[in-house]
């Protein structure tokens, strides 16, 4: 007897899975500053490098590179922090109370508080708990990350229809994936919808993160890198 070949899965999601960047390591700051300031310096350096990787990653999302350069910029300017937040959240899924920015940069609540990141800690852990409860899979994570960028509600798009098609393609991939995986989440016929309904909280969390880094910049506590500042500048 021959068994039918297992479906190879959704092409878009397979592409997203192979395009997932390797996790970065933090480069611990060695300046003679306080522990708290060193944590912030290390974090800002890591996030700046992560942002650089994120822009390279976006080009691998099926359909992204076909958009006009102006629209690519608009989507990234709108959605970069949401993508960064989702990345940190996904790394923190295995932890009960830490924010795992990198394997070697895990901050517990007390460390975040000492560094002035209490608000960010609370918001990121809230979102992390939500995805922990849902049992977010790697396939769902990569699709949500891409959708976040596609759905960044940028104004004045050059090719609004092309962006809509880009968004629809990702949505279709998510729906196709979920309709084929009802066995892994029995009774969750509405899983795709439930995942999409987490996006408002993701946006709210990213706004909190933007506020936090704008405040750090205003207080001039941490010198920020050029790329990070450029992206932040668009949010002020």
């Amino acid at each position: 007897l021959t068994h039918p070949a297992k479906p190879i899965g959704n092409k878009v999601i397979s592409q997203l899975l192979v395009s997932e960047p390797a996790p970065l390591s933090a480069i611990p700051d060695s300046s003679p500053s306080s522990t708290e300031l060193r944590s912030l310096l290390t974090l800002c350096d890591l996030l700046n490098r992560e942002l650089l990787v994120l822009i390279g990653w976006a080009k691998h999302i099926p359909g992204f590179s076909a958009l006009s350069l102006v629209d690519q910029m608009a989507l990234l300017q709108g959605g970069w922090m949401e993508v960064l937040v989702l990345s940190v959240v996904s790394r923190s899924l295995g932890s009960a109370d830490e924010l795992v920015f990198a394997d070697n940069l895990r901050l517990a609540e007390a460390q975040c508080r000492a560094a002035g990141l209490s608000d960010l800690y609370t918001a990121l852990r809230h979102l992390t708990r939500k995805y922990q409860q849902m049992g977010l899979s790697p396939e769902e994570l990569v699709t949500l990350k891409a959708m976040t960028l596609a759905n960044s509600d940028a104004a004045n798009l050059e090719g609004a229809e092309a962006v809509q098609r880009f968004r629809d393609g990702l949505h279709e991939a998510l729906q196709e994936h979920e309709s084929g995986h009802t066995h892994s989440h029995p009774g969750e016929l509405h899983r795709a919808g439930r995942l999409l309904m987490t996006l408002p909280l993701l946006r709210q969390t990213a706004a909190r993160a933007v506020d936090t880094f704008c405040r750090l910049h205003r207080e001039r506590r941490v010198p920020m890198h050029k790329l990070f500042l450029e992206m932040l500048d668009n949010k002020i």
Binding site: I55, V70, N234
Partner: peptide
């Protein structure tokens, strides 16, 4: 565009070295 020089450069050409 002028405001987002680094992003613009990164998207235009992935091989351009960027001063971070």
């Amino acid at each position: 565009k002028e405001k987002h020089k680094i992003l613009h450069r990164l998207l235009q050409n992935s091989t351009t070295p960027v001063d971070l």
